[in-house]
Amino acid sequence: MSHVNAPEYRLLAELEAAFDTLIENTEALLAAYARSPGEAWAFQAEATTEWLRQALLDFWYQDGQDGRVTRSHVGLVAADDALLERVAAVNVAKAEFAALLGRIREAHPPLIAEIKAVLPFRRPELHQHLRGSGLARLHLKQCWRAIPVAEAPVARVRLAWYASGRSIKRLTVREAERKLLALDTDAPHVRIQLRKLAGLPGSEPLAQVQGQAPLMRANLFFTEPLADGRTRRALNVALPVFIPAPRGRLPHCNEPPATPPETRTRARRRDERLEAEPFLPSLRIHRYRQDMA
């Protein structure tokens, strides 16, 4: 790693140690489960100890994988207190790893690509996965995403596809103009959008909308109300959910459809704040509805 100064070397050394801790804690979790496995369920797979290992150690890009996309391993695992302690230790390690990555992104962004390629060689047993498997380098987000945990015993779980997710970023007219000017301003459709934008007052807020890939959502119904009165919790599921179960038994769970719906399943909210059609289609930028102002 060339052109790295002493403070950045220290950050890298900390990251390597954090990666080792993450792997060691994950291995300890898997060993604890193998010694005393509770019930488990996997979506469209057999819930074996090997399935759980693959799910919790899936840190790799596959050939051709979009860097913005993460793979999901939907499932449920019944966990006693000892196993839940192991899960908590893994999540702490993931959070520390993510925090160090954030510092490195700010201090020396070019190092990130090298980190993805070099870190796997620190763990030879993991690097075996790379040989002939179409796995190229670390997918950092898949390393640090937390393992979901139910905070109390659960009576039943309802799984459902959520296909209407989106992220909304608020923009000023000036920011939208800069984004348009970064496109091909000789193109007629860009010039049309610049003229439309010029007709807006500079103080009007705009919203850039990004649709999100379908994901699985778990609705957990607790056996008893929590201290704050909640009786249920909804969470997005990318990794197996660990559920407190002293007797090692899972609650009832439905079998969701194999694939997400092709069309929107939720009715559009009557209080939707954005206009349905984008004002600047090239950038997915919408105006806020004037009757909601």
Rank of each mutant, 00 (worst) to 15 (best):
A234S: 15
F222E: 03
M216W: 07
Q212Y: 01
R233N: 06
F222P: 04
A198R: 14
P225F: 03
A234Y: 01
T231N: 06
L220I: 10
A218Q: 07
L215D: 07
R230A: 15
P214V: 08
G211P: 08
R232M: 10
N219W: 11
T223L: 06
E224K: 13
M216T: 04
R232C: 00
F221V: 12
R232K: 10
F221N: 05
L215E: 13
A218R: 02
L215C: 07
P225T: 05
L206F: 08
L206M: 11
A234L: 09
Q208C: 05
D228A: 08
L226P: 03
R217V: 15
E224L: 09
A234K: 12
G211I: 00
A198T: 05
G229W: 04
S203A: 13
L235H: 00
N219G: 08
M216Q: 09
P205A: 13
N219L: 14
E224I: 00
N219D: 10
T223R: 13
G211M: 11
R217K: 15
A218M: 09
V209D: 03
L206C: 10
N236K: 05
E224G: 00
R230C: 03
G202A: 15
G211D: 14
L215K: 14
Q208M: 14
A218N: 07
P205W: 03
P201L: 03
L200M: 09
G202K: 12
L215T: 13
Q210M: 06
D228Y: 02
F222A: 02
L220C: 09
R232N: 09
L206E: 09
L200W: 04
P205K: 13
G199Y: 01
F222C: 02
D228F: 02
F221S: 10
G229S: 08
V209F: 05
L220A: 08
F221L: 10
L235G: 03
L220Y: 01
L226M: 09
L220S: 07
E204Y: 01
A218G: 12
A218V: 10
L215V: 14
L235D: 01
P225E: 03
N219H: 14
S203W: 13
R233Y: 09
